[in-house]
Every structure is written in C-alpha cells, then in structure tokens.
Amino acid sequence: DGYGLGREALPEEIAAWNLDIAPDGTGLPDGSGSVEDGEWIFSENCAVCHGEFAEGVDNWPKLAGGEDTLADKDPLKTVGSYWPYLSTVFDYVRRSMPFGAAQTLSDDDIYAITAYILYSNYLVEDDFVLSKDNFLDVEMPNAEGFIVDDRAKTEYPIFTEANACYENCKDDVEITMRATVLDVTPEETAEEEAALQEAAAETVVEPDTTDKAESAVDAAAEPAMEAPDPELVAAGENVFKKCKACHKVGEDAKNGTGPLLNGVVGHPAAQNADFKYSNGMKDAAAGGLVWDHEALTGYLTKPRDYIKGTKMSFAGLKKQDDIDAVIAYLSTFD
C-alpha cells in the first residue's frame, strides 16, 4: 500500500508544530496567567497595535467593545462581541502574535494576555486567573451567534433559471449611486508614476559638477564612517522584519505607527517633524540624545528602560548580533 515516500514524523517534531487548540480545549498547554500580569504583558507586546485597553490603534483590529452591535449598521466585531470560542484567542495569540515576533511568548504569558482581553471586554473581574482548568468555564457572549452556511436553503431556490428574466424585466431604470461621488478609488496609475519618474530622471540626469562637489563636501563633513559590512546589512534586513509592522525605511517610506527610520543612525533623536513622539523621547532629544551605535544599542536592548515613557512597546532585541546587524541595515538609509 502507498508509495513508501516520506518518513515517520518524530514525537518531538509533532509536538513542535501541533499547536492548534480546539473549541473543547484539546491542545491547551499547562500553565496559567492573571489579568494583573496580562495588563503589562499586553501593554509591552500588543498595545502598540491594539491599544492599551484593546481598543485598537488606527486600522489595527479592535479586541474589545462592540457589545450588542452585530445587528447594527457597521457592527463592531471584537473578541467580546463576536468571537464564539475562547480557544481561538489562545490558539491565535500562541501561533501568530505578536505581529512580527510570532511564537516568542510563553504559555503563561498567553494565558495572561487572554485573561486581560477578557477583562477588557468586562467578561471577567480584575482578580481573574485563567488556566487550563477554568478555560471552558468562560462564557463567550456570542457563542450561540453562528449558524452553518444555509445558502442552499435560503438562496439557491430563489436565484434560479426560472426566475431569470430576459424581456420587459422592468419599466425603467435609474442610477441610485455613483462611485465617483465617494471618490475613494486610488488615483495613481502606473502611467502617471512612470511620467513622474521620467520627469524626476530628467532633472537628475544633467551632468552637474556641483553635485560631485557637494558629495565631496558631505564626505569631508561627516565623520569617517566605515561602509557597513554587506553581510551584516543583509542580516539586519532580516532582523528588521520584527520592526516592519510599525517602522518603514526606503525611498517612498512614510511614518507608520512608528516613525520613518531613514536617516536616523548617527543623527539627533526625534528629528521627524511629522511624527508625534512621546514626551519621554522629546525630553531625551532635548537633552541631546544622538542615535549613535551606543545609544541605539541601549534603546534596542530595553526600549522602555532606556527612554522612560517611550511609545514603542517593542520588548527589545536580546542578541547583540541582531542589534549590530539592524543598526548596520538602518545606516544604509539616509
């Protein structure tokens, strides 16, 4: 029987990947976590996108609120108002969160985060501790809010050949709504972009001696910084994946949840006029903070210890190699 291909999966391999948790609790690990611990763990790891109270930042998902809105226009679907199973929260957080640093939290941390999300939705008290033992006792408000796909009964009998009209189907037709009135369609077409690039290219193409002169001046003015090692830069690009959810770099990059990081390495802190820095960061900048290698190392190791009150809720990079690499990578963006 079979082709005899593949090899038997080892128990430790299955254990490493078989992390899913079913609604009946199958797959829940040992451990526990309190709302109290969850509050700061959530604050450190989740709040940057989901808000301190799970209320959501920008377009990132709101995890709390929305009770009794499901039948309204634009219902607010959160863990509290919509999610039918608590297992889904634990399962998703354990495998896929935090965004950009998945699978870095301990099982206790995940119990605590899950407990805090419940608390944010007023589903448990502030002294609540969640564990494998009481997991299934938590009642999810919308647990009974789902039905299995019923299109075969409610739709297919109506949308049929017999009901398809070909002649004299209606007396008149009126336009009731136009997309151009809303005007939310992205405008930029490739043609326009190409034209812009061409125009830009034309202005740059002229051989200009002042250009060279300027770069010579630049080179002289800047402290002789060694060109970063390409391998280190490549490694840094990889490390930067942890930062990408909030920070952008490169030509067309803009501020996101965090500030744009072009031209940061070697320059004074909080220089981006369009970004709303925390007071802690502004104070540090006023105190003369310059993002040299040492300062960046300090900040990236433990952001919240290095700048009190920073809005960056990233927990920090544990390895010096990673820090060196990401600094090298960032230094390539002027």
Binding site: I21, L70, A71, P75, T88, D91, F146
Partner: peptide, 23 residues
Amino acid sequence: QAVESREETSKYTDTLADGTSRK
C-alpha cells in the same frame, strides 16, 4: 472537529441583518 481558528470564526464569517452570522 473543526479547529475554529481565527480565520474561520472572527474572519470569513458572514453577519446577517439580525446579527446572526453564517460560518
């Protein structure tokens, strides 16, 4: 049993006018 993961409960479900959702 179905795992009822995030992508099959909180997303990719269809809320009807009365607030009930199809999964």
